Computed example of a mutant assay.
Amino acid sequence: MGEIIEVIYENGVLKPLRPLKLKEGQRLRVRIYHEDFLELAREMRKQVTPEKFREDPTDYLLRLREEET
């Protein structure tokens, strides 16, 4: 199970902008999306209907980025 949360980076630490339901010492895997990337994904969601696009725009952009490298 996963979720997307917003964080702020301060003094070398990522700080969530809302409380999280996590156990003390729980290990997580984090994927960082820069705000400009998220804005592009939001714009894609407005323009593309589910009938035309079966893949989540964020996943699609990440896959394209990984294929380029």
Rank of each mutant, 00 (worst) to 15 (best):
V48H: 15
P19W: 02
F37A: 10
I4P: 13
A41S: 01
R42L: 06
E66K: 10
E51L: 02
D56H: 03
R65I: 04
E24W: 08
E51D: 09
E55V: 00
K23Q: 12
L62E: 06
R54P: 06
L64Q: 05
E67K: 08
L28Q: 07
K46Q: 08
F53I: 09
Y9C: 09
L22V: 05
L17C: 13
Y33Q: 06
R29E: 11
R65K: 11
A41H: 00
M1R: 12
R63P: 12
T58W: 09
Q26S: 06
L40H: 01
P57R: 09
L61I: 09
L62D: 06
R18L: 13
I4N: 06
T69M: 15
E10Q: 14
K46D: 01
F37K: 08
I5Y: 10
R27V: 06
R27P: 09
I4D: 15
P19D: 11
R29L: 06
D59W: 10
L61D: 12
G12R: 01
G2R: 08
I5Q: 11
Y60P: 12
K46R: 01
G2C: 13
K23W: 09
Q26N: 02
K52G: 04
Q47G: 07
P57W: 10
K15M: 03
M44V: 01
V7P: 09
V30S: 14
E51N: 05
L20F: 12
T69I: 14
L17H: 13
P57Y: 03
P16G: 00
L20M: 05
K23C: 15
E43A: 04
D36E: 07
G2L: 07
P19C: 01
L38W: 14
E3C: 04
E66Q: 15
E35I: 01
E10R: 15
E6I: 09
K15S: 04
A41Q: 00
G2S: 12
L61N: 13
E39M: 02
V7Q: 07
L38M: 08
M44R: 04
L61F: 04
V7K: 05
Y60G: 13
D59M: 10
A41T: 00
K21T: 12
R29T: 13
G25N: 08
L64S: 03
E55I: 01
R54C: 01
E39C: 08
E6C: 08
L64C: 05
T49E: 13
E67W: 12
E51W: 03
L28S: 09
L64R: 01
I5C: 11
L14F: 13
T49Y: 02
E24N: 05
L61S: 14
